[in-house]
């Protein structure tokens, strides 16, 4: 079943209304029931190019860049959890647990990065509006393929933006997150295609160096923008 058109585009779940006892289980219920109706006001004052979100420069920009990736992924997994494929998985089955965990991890990253940006006296970017209208959330193949794209993209994003951090604590935080993203990426790739956790499209196998393939922030933004609605597309001009 496709997500009803009235539900799209989805916003990344950000600050949410009161949810008593919102642990994992109730988050799953919550995400299923409510995520599709969440819309959030913009709080950014830095849109220099109309219709784009300028993520800023230096440490604030690098944190916001990570925050944008996590918002995008959080919106994706919230929609997965609200969708037919997830709904039909047996409770306690491996994939059900994987998607529930991934959704929860993303929420934690979104929350923590926003809080860290505010704590650092920088301005967090607005709550982004994702557009996954091209993804069929009743299709395992579609979900896993998109999950792998987003997880691989996030790893490349963190690796590529690391050099813009000047504050050691921020670099350390990013490093603590990126290896878990790489674990996510390996897992969803393996679910999609067994043993594809380090395939040539993400690791430089043909070059013989066996490094994660690099992407500049501009390349990551261009790929991420394919999943972001008009008005939420990322502008990384100050991160170069």
């Amino acid at each position: 079943m496709l997500i009803p058109s009235s539900a799209a585009p989805l916003a990344a779940a950000d600050y949410i209304p009161h949810l008593p006892n919102a642990g994992r289980r109730s988050f799953v219920k919550y995400a299923g029931a409510v995520a599709a109706t969440l819309t959030l006001a913009s709080c950014s004052k830095h849109n220099e190019v109309p219709g784009t979100v300028n993520i800023g420069s230096a440490d604030g920009g690098a944190l916001n860049f990570a925050y944008a990736q996590e918002q995008l992924q959080a919106a994706f997994y919230a929609q997965v959890l609200a969708g037919a494929y997830f709904g039909n998985l047996a409770v306690g089955s491996a994939e059900q647990q994987v998607f529930a965990a991934l959704a929860l991890h993303q929420r934690i990253y979104v929350d923590l990065l926003k809080a860290t940006i505010i704590q650092g006296k920088a301005a967090p970017i607005q709550a982004l509006t994702a557009d996954f209208s091209a993804v069929n959330f009743s299709s395992r193949q579609d979900i896993l393929r998109t999950a792998a794209q987003l997880e691989d993209l996030a790893v490349a994003a963190y690796n590529g933006v690391a050099r813009f951090f000047t504050v050691p604590a921020y670099l350390l935080l990013a490093a603590k997150i990126v290896s878990v993203k790489a674990r996510h990426a390996a897992l969803v790739r393996d679910l999609l295609t067994p043993n594809s956790f380090v395939a040539n499209d993400v690791v430089t196998l043909t070059e013989g160096t066996s490094l994660e393939r690099a992407q500049t922030p501009a390349q990551v933004a261009a790929a991420a923008n394919n999943f972001l609605a008009t008005g939420s597309k990322l502008n990384v001009i100050n991160l170069a």
């Binding site: 790893v155 963190y158 690796n159 690391a162 490093a175 990126v178 290896s179 878990v180 993203k181 790489a182 674990r183 990426a185 390996a186 956790f197 380090v198 993400v202 690791v203 066996s210 490094l211 994660e212 393939r213 690099a214």
Partner: peptide
């Protein structure tokens, strides 16, 4: 970091 994330994929 590009080695680090490959090691994480291995792990």
């Amino acid at each position: 970091l590009r080695i680090h994330s490959v090691e994480a994929r291995h792990a």
